Structure formats: C-alpha cells, structure tokens
Amino acid sequence: MTRSAGGVPVTDALAALRSARHDWRTRHDAGHDPASFPSRGAMERVVELLAAALYPRRLGHFRGVPADEDSFVAAKLLAAVTELEREIAAELGYWQAEASSGRFDPDQPATIVRLFVAGLGDVRRLIDSDVEAAFLGDPAARSADEILVCYPGAIASLHHRIAHPLYELGAPIVARLVSELANERTGIDIHPGATIGASFFIDHGTGVVIGETAIIGERVRLYQHVTLGARTPRGDDPDRPRTRYARHPIVEDDVVIYAGATILGRVTIGQGAMIGGNVWLLDDVPAGRTVVQPEALVLDDAVGWRVREDLRDA
C-alpha cells in the first residue's frame, strides 16, 4: 500500500483521482494537447513587464537618466511581447483542438501581438485619464502617483486597459487571465469584454462586478459593491444561461452609481444620471434623473422610526 510520509494510505485516493481525471478528459479534453493552454504565471509576468513599460518610473522602478528611459522601456516591452506571443499561441492551439478541425495561421500570434503593441500609446492615455479622474474625484488623494500605485480602482483599470484589446484581438483566455489577476488583487471583477470610456473612476472598489457586454461611457464613477450584471433567465425562457447576447447595462457619460447598487440586464442609464446606494434596478433611467430607494427611516428616541421628511420626495 502506498503511504505518504505521515503514514496516510493514498492508494484508494490515487485510483479515485485517476478515474475522475479520465472521466473529465473524456468529456472535455479529447484531442487537446496538455501544454496548449495559457499560463497564469506567465501572464502575471507579462502584466508586470507591460506595467513597467507603461510607467517606467512608478511601476518599473527605473532610476536612470532620462536619456536611458527608452532603452529601459524597450527591454521591458521585448521581454513582455516574447512571452505574450507564446501564451497567445498556446491559446490558439487550445481553440484549434476545441474545434477539432483546421489549423490556426502560425503568424496569427505575432499579428495579435503587433496590433496590441501598436495600441499601447492609447492604453497609456486611457490609464492616465482614469488616474486623473480619481485624483479629481477623491479629496483624500495626495498625488496622482499615489493613485496609480495604491488605489485598487486604478490597479483594476490598468489591468482592464491591457486585457480589453487582447480580448478584442482574439485572445479571450489570455485577456481573462489578466482581468482575474486584478480581481485577485483588488476584489474588482471586470470582464475583459466590457467597453469602458475614458476617465473611469472606481472609488474604494471592493466587490464591483462589470459584465462582458457592459458599455460604459466617459467620466463614469462607481463605488464599492456595484454590479453591472445580467439577469438570470427563467427556467422556461428560450435564452439559456450560456446564450451569448448583449445582456449587461449601458451606462452613458457622467453617470455616478453609489455603493451597493445592482443594475441588471440590457438597460440604459442615461447621461448624467445618479443611482443611489443599494438600489435594485431592472429598467432604463432617463438622462439626468436620480434613482433612490423610496423611503429612508431614522431612529427618533422620542417616537421611534419615522420617515425623514427631507428625503420623502427625493
């Protein structure tokens, strides 16, 4: 009987695990190359290298003279794209096995990387706009550098600005790994498919969820525990949970959504609207409107609970 160092028998467990692996692979992995799947660890290195190239002084810790900065950035980029191309090739190999036919163009990973790198200037400017929005929107911030390095919303935005173009260029698993690294670090879950305009600010941020087909305009601010999600179909609904369609909210420019709000389905929140905390919303909101819970109660020592008159008609 096989035993571990602690004397615990493992023979039965080995057999059970072998059987479970076989059953899973029979259902899901037929024809797959075990090596053809992107590596989470590799993508973590790629994001670190890209962050250093995007922000050589603050995130890359470059301490040389300005004349040497381009050389530093070039080295980080070269290392990043070399590893990124390898991971994209692994993903395309995985999808090829999933399709069980044809073969992806061997030049496709390099093409995706080339197009991605060509857009890095725009990525940097979008991240800059997010950092500036946070600095303008949060009086507690002492500097833009503090936001870039410390704020979970800025960290999640940086990851999303990297992940979204990879998703659009045809590397959804690689992109999802980038977004999940941010989720693990910040508690903010932004699907890489979500489209987000400039000057996006997530204040505090823990528990924010933004779904795959969400569209967010410019200068939008979210607080913690906001969900931009999809409605779960009823059992008799022809749409099933895996049906792919535009199923998440559209949030137009200059919208503010306060903590705990849940907005579900393909609804539109009009420009300049404000959604109050803990609101459950399934319908469109016209531009400029404010949506709050119908009543707020306060405890009065003399009469107990009463409706606050100043909030009754808010």
Rank of each mutant, 00 (worst) to 15 (best):
A79P: 01
A79I: 02
A79S: 15
A80H: 09
V81N: 00
T82H: 12
T82V: 00
T82G: 15
T82N: 10
E83S: 11
E83N: 11
L84D: 11
L84M: 10
L84T: 08
L84G: 08
E85H: 03
E85A: 12
E85Y: 01
E85Q: 15
E85G: 13
E85F: 01
R86D: 00
E87P: 04
E87L: 09
E87S: 02
E87F: 04
E87W: 01
I88H: 05
I88A: 09
A89N: 06
A89S: 11
A89I: 08
A89K: 00
A90M: 09
A90P: 00
E91M: 08
E91P: 10
E91H: 11
L92M: 06
L92N: 02
G93H: 08
Y94M: 14
Y94V: 01
Y94N: 13
Y94I: 04
Y94P: 04
W95D: 11
W95G: 03
W95H: 13
Q96F: 02
Q96A: 11
A97I: 06
A97L: 09
A97F: 06
A97E: 05
E98N: 11
E98T: 13
A99R: 14
S100F: 06
S100W: 08
S100K: 14
S101G: 12
R103L: 10
R103E: 13
R103M: 07
R103S: 15
F104L: 03
D105G: 03
P106Q: 03
P106T: 04
D107W: 02
D107N: 06
D107R: 13
D107A: 14
Q108P: 02
Q108D: 08
P109D: 05
A110L: 07
A110Q: 10
T111N: 06
T111K: 12
T111I: 10
T111C: 04
T111Q: 13
I112M: 05
I112Q: 07
I112F: 07
I112L: 08
I112S: 05
I112P: 03
V113E: 03
V113N: 04
V113C: 03
R114P: 00
R114Q: 11
R114C: 06
R114V: 02
R114D: 12
L115A: 09
L115G: 08
L115H: 14
L115M: 11
F116C: 01
F116A: 00
F116M: 07
V117Q: 07
V117F: 01
V117C: 05
A118F: 10
A118T: 09
A118P: 00
A118V: 04
A118Y: 10
